[in-house]
Amino acid sequence: MAEDKIIKRREFIHTGVRFALGISLAGIGVAAARKTTAEKWVWQIDPAKCTQCGRCATDCVKSPSAVKCIHAYEVCGYCDLCGGYFKPGVKKMETGGENHLCPTAAIQRKFIEEPYFEYVIIEELCIGCAKCVKGCSSFGNGSLHLQIRHNLCDNCNECAIARVCPSDAISRVPASQPYIIKGDFHGGTKA
């Protein structure tokens, strides 16, 4: 039976190729497995590298961006004239719209005691434009800085902001250490 023979031969070849494919898959698996970690990786901004270009606000796949300004109170000087809060050259330190640097008024200024003020970021309003970060780094301690908020981030396979970041400030960090916060920061209240 020539037909049978042909079919058998075909089946034999198929099985052989299947094994070959299976083995090559296993090969790729093993080769890649040597680079695997049980750790999850997430994207984060290194504030030391960030140049406050403003692309975090425009290039994140989320809108508004998953990048928000956070305040490292530990590093803050609690200045009255805050370079992150006020527009440069402000004359009267009032909290009116003519004075804030933040386009969405996401920074709250609270009086503590003479002559110190506390600045709190209202995250719902922040769009990650880094205007305040630039102000704070230029005139102050740089306590305001950008971070990717992991409750908002989709953790894309390739971060759309990282691709366009001019200073390569965004890289993957282990999920167990998901933030790079300035100052002596070892954790905080979880939100």
């Binding site: 004359k91 003519e98 386009p103």
Partner: peptide, 26 residues
């Protein structure tokens, strides 16, 4: 408007105008 206010610092009218503009924009 803010530039104008920088020159004319005591113009309360202008200040109010900026504030309402700012609110509208946001």
């Amino acid at each position: 408007l803010v530039q104008r206010l920088a020159v004319d610092d005591n113009n309360e009218e202008l200040r109010k105008e900026i504030r309402s503009f700012d609110l509208l924009a946001r």
